[in-house]
Amino acid sequence: MDEHADTVVRLASVHKTYGDVVALGGVTLRIRRGEAVAVMGPSGSGKSTLLNMVAGLDRPTCGSVVVDGEDLTGMGESALARFRRRRIGMVFQFFNLLDDLPALENVALAGRLVGMPPRKARARALELLDRLGIADRQGAYPAVLSGGERQRVGVARALMNRPALLLADEPTGALDSRTGDQVVDLLLDLNRTGQTLLLVTHDERLATRCATRLVEFTDGRIVRETEPNRSRPWSVR
């Protein structure tokens, strides 16, 4: 396979500083299509900064970030937003659903942003909710959903536009262990169907269960990369 086509994320010597604080100190990383990469490290090690760089939410001080063939380094805010809505799906620790919209509309909203007609967007959203096992909660507002249900809605929203890369920031951090396991299973299933995954977590158990590769961060640098004993995805999308 062509190396470029096979690569979803390529970070080359990425530095990020906030004043005197070095958040990333020259990170080089390549994530191949279909991989599930877990980034681990202590608090303040630069994990979330890395995630923000890949999502186009933050810009590197120097170095380059290429995601799904797009160099994000020189992009403006609007171009980054358009890039995000088509190529990236994000799952947050605290779900970040819009409280005033029911589950179905929360998911469909991502489709509306790429110009999908409302009816088609709702049909796609319902299909995803059904796939994630919460179609019966489509009309419920976030306030009445359980933590696990909220995170499933968050995952459905992230998958709405068939992203090249699914980013998950502590996806089980706000869930109890049983619900967390369910979400891990969900992510595993997604990866097994070919969804590329970049996961940021403190949770070693989650990382080793979910990831095909572990990247350990300390003080803004990659200190170790390992491959846990998890089988490679069966197929590449």
Binding site: S78, A81, L98, R157
Partner: peptide
Amino acid sequence: SRDLGVLKAVGMTPRQ
């Protein structure tokens, strides 16, 4: 502010 952040994270441009 959180909702706005989420909307931008899922692809809403600053102009939108």
